[in-house]
Computed example of a mutant assay.
Amino acid sequence: MAAAAAELPDSVLVRILALLPLRERLGAASVCRRWQRLAQDREVWRDVDGSAHPLSSRSLWLLLRRRFQPSLRTLRLRGRLRSALRQRLLSPALLAALAKRCPRLLGLYLTETDLRHLPSSSLPASLVALELSCCEIPASWFCSALPNLRHLVIRRVPAFSDRHLLNVVSGSRLKSLSLSGTYRLTDVGICRAAPRLEELETLRLIRCGVGDSAAGSIGLYMKRLRLLELGEAHGLTEAGLKSLGSLRSLETLDLHLPLSPGAVIAVCRALPGLRSLQLRGLRFEDGITDQIRADFPFCSFSKAP
């Protein structure tokens, strides 16, 4: 590979190095002097994905000091939440050093990371996107405002509750919100947060406490929604689904709900901008699929069992 790469210009090789997994990217610096020089290029360290393997705090400190560049835009990390050692990947000091070293960091994506010892005020203020998957957070998280935060994804974080959502919306103007497996989030919390989510364009609520009241608040306040996905919301009935007909800007509707196809068709008829309809978990009688395609000829339609 090194012999073939010798014929490539530096600009092309830098792009190739930037596509390598983290371990291979680090190993490339030991191939030859040219690769060592190119491996330090800021383009190589614009996006860093360390989520393939758990990292230790020590390893992350070494990366920060020796490799990370001010050009860093996105950082993906995996901790050791399931390890018996429960080593803490992040600390306030490390995050402070990260914010100083990489002032343009826009996206932080954490998997299996214990954050209970970490105040949310430690997060870099530059963050535009934050994703937490299978993490542990304290009850006081998100009390400190993240003024630039526009995109929030929470997956399988059981501690995430109404209080967390209200803290987020009080200090951030979200454009997209995706919550999955947040069982402590209730209908009441969504209703209280909805008036502060008027700028939301993408909303995904899967295995959350979504009921008719929450659906009514979504239809009342989130008029800019372009994509809405609702799944496994056992408290949502056809009455609540009907209230979504006021989302005139909605382009994509994805439902995995045990509702009648007739109720879905009725709400879709009230959505003039609908271009994509995905239905899962519905029982289709003969002719229903053809009726949906006939009623919405400009809308792509798919269904899954």
Rank of each mutant, 00 (worst) to 15 (best):
A3Q: 13
A5R: 02
A6G: 01
E7N: 10
L8F: 15
L8S: 04
L8H: 11
R15P: 01
L19F: 10
L20H: 00
R23C: 12
E24I: 01
E24S: 13
L26M: 14
A29Y: 04
S30R: 01
D41C: 06
R42M: 11
E43V: 12
V44L: 07
W61L: 10
L62E: 10
R67W: 02
P70R: 03
S71K: 04
L72Q: 08
T74I: 00
L75N: 09
A84I: 01
Q87C: 06
Q87A: 14
R88V: 06
L89P: 07
L90R: 04
L90A: 05
A93I: 02
A93E: 15
A93T: 11
L94N: 02
A96K: 11
L98E: 01
C102T: 07
L106E: 15
L108G: 04
Y109K: 10
D114S: 11
D114P: 02
H117R: 15
P119L: 00
P119M: 00
S122L: 01
L123T: 09
P124Y: 10
A125I: 10
S126T: 14
L127A: 13
L127C: 07
L132K: 06
S133W: 13
S140H: 13
C143G: 00
L146I: 08
N148W: 06
H151V: 00
L152H: 13
V157E: 08
P158T: 13
F160R: 03
F160Q: 10
D162H: 12
D162R: 06
L165I: 03
L174I: 04
L179W: 05
G181I: 13
Y183K: 05
T186H: 10
V188A: 12
I190T: 01
C191E: 11
C191K: 04
A194F: 01
A194K: 06
L197V: 09
L200S: 07
R204T: 15
I206R: 07
A214V: 02
Y221T: 02
R226G: 09
A233E: 02
S243H: 11
L250C: 07
T252E: 14
L253Y: 08
L253I: 03
L255D: 02
P258M: 11
G262F: 08
G262N: 11
I265Q: 14
C268W: 09
A270R: 14
R275V: 14
L279M: 08
R283V: 12
F284A: 05
G287P: 14
F296P: 03
F298P: 10
F301Q: 04
K303P: 00
A304D: 09
P305Y: 08
P305C: 14
